[in-house]
Design a protein around this nucleic acid. Structure first.
Lengths: 84, 84
DNA sequence: AAAGTATTTCGATATTTGTCGAAACATAAA
DNA sequence: TTTATGTTTCGACAAATATCGAAATACTTT
């Protein structure tokens, strides 16, 4: 839970999720959407993966990333509970 | 939005919200629930207030904090949108 | 007015985080 | 088997963050 909030606490990482929501993408294609270096994006993707917010699959020399929304339910449950 | 995720990205601040969910409390009473100093809790409360997640009202020499859940709807909307 | 209680601000420090370029690793193409 | 392309790891550094004790501020009580 801690790590999910940590992963969501960054504008770039949140934007990555919004991009992946539209379609799966390679690490390179993702990094092209941003003005920071590839190592930095790789690091962000690593954090997102640790939080289980994205999955990664190797396809030849590419690594394809996809959003994984199952964890979001947990967060929403926690948020909803605060309102009760 | 950025500041809300930042505010939620801390175990102590999230626990403060869970405590305030039950009942409004003074800064001192809140700090007694934790093993960190009062200045630290004061700082956390300040961040929560900046994010509009709590409100504070002065009552004599006390400051009473209360949870404010209106911002949570925004977050949930953002989370839900990721699933569409 | 003086002393006591509640809370925040200040100044300092250790830790964490985002970023980078260079190098390493992995696969593909020539 | 070189050469090229895609991705991650490494080492370093600057900025942000959590924490603390002491001091400052605000209010209450005596």
């Amino acid at each position: 839970m801690n790590i999910v909030f940590k992963a969501l606490n960054d504008p770039i990482r949140r934007e990555i999720l919004e991009i992946l929501k539209e379609k799966d993408m390679t690490a390179g294609d993702i990094s092209e959407q941003f003005d920071v270096g590839k190592p930095t994006i790789s690091h962000h993707l690593d954090l997102l993966r640790q939080a289980n917010l994205v999955t990664s699959e190797k396809d030849g020399q590419f690594v394809i990333y996809a959003i994984n929304t199952t964890v979001l339910d947990e967060i929403m449950k926690w948020l909803l509970d605060l309102k009760k």
